[in-house]
Write a protein that binds this DNA or RNA. Sequence first.
DNA 1: GGTGAAACTTCTAATAA
DNA 2: TTATTAGAAGTTTCACC
Lengths: 159, 159
Amino acid sequence: MAKFKLDEIDHQILDMLIENTRVPFTDIAKKLLISAGTVHVRVKKMEDAGIIKGSSLTLDYKKLGYSFIAYVGVFLQNTSKTSFVLERISEIPYVTVAHVTTGKFNIFCKIRARNTEHAKDVIFMLDDIEGVYRTETMISLDESINDKKRLMHSIFNDL
Amino acid sequence: MAKFKLDEIDHQILDMLIENTRVPFTDIAKKLLISAGTVHVRVKKMEDAGIIKGSSLTLDYKKLGYSFIAYVGVFLQNTSKTSFVLERISEIPYVTVAHVTTGKFNIFCKIRARNTEHAKDVIFMLDDIEGVYRTETMISLDESINDKKRLMHSIFNDL
DNA sequence: GGTGAAACTTCTAATAA
DNA sequence: TTATTAGAAGTTTCACC
């Protein structure tokens, strides 16, 4: 995968859009002392290059009654069953991310649930998948998410 | 934390915005057979209630040269050092998420790096934090992210 | 609550530099 | 590559259901 060449202006545009995707291009233009047309062209270019894959809302799941987060490590009976199990896992909506990993576990996933009871149900669903030997759960007591902008700054300085 | 009451229309609006935050309100209105003004008011209400916390871009980190993902479990010498260590961890931009967890590890984090070499540097940074006893790394070979919309549908059906 | 229309702002594509 | 510009499109407010 080739590295895409971002210049300082692209970087600044991304910076503003990372914080709020609906910020008007005219505002970005004003801040960067360029025209809104230029912002438009640059964003389009980054979209076409696939750097910007899309945009999404950040929701408060706690306010929706889903305050429980856990990570579940999955041990398989046999690694040849990996893709089958991944498929089954992807059918569970409460699993938000799944990884095939090296190290202790074969598959590693993050789940989001209403409460302990509900999480138990979800973990049982995972345990019940054919090919799963056993699972190990880590309950999150507190989640802190690092600023995406910070990472982007480091990435930009590396390029 | 009180659960917020979303009705079918709010849900549909969220659904469209989750997929693309820049979809025009007029498009949403057309699809849901309501006025653009109503969409506007509803979105504002969800923002005010804090359900919608913000919006952000989905970036292709691989294309930016950052294809390495790992999870790192952190063992502390003493749990009283948790907040101090979390502070230090939050200063490392390559750590994207950190959790305080029950179970095997005291702290659990996700890192994103350029490559194995770079990841090693990041893990050494974690190891070097005062109060960290040792760490355990799981390298992600493959990440699959479940559709946010699927989770929202389940949440909506639960409410 | 919702609507429709007016006033205002922003987007976008073509043209020019 | 960037700026300008003008018509198209979107947002937001408000008087009225």
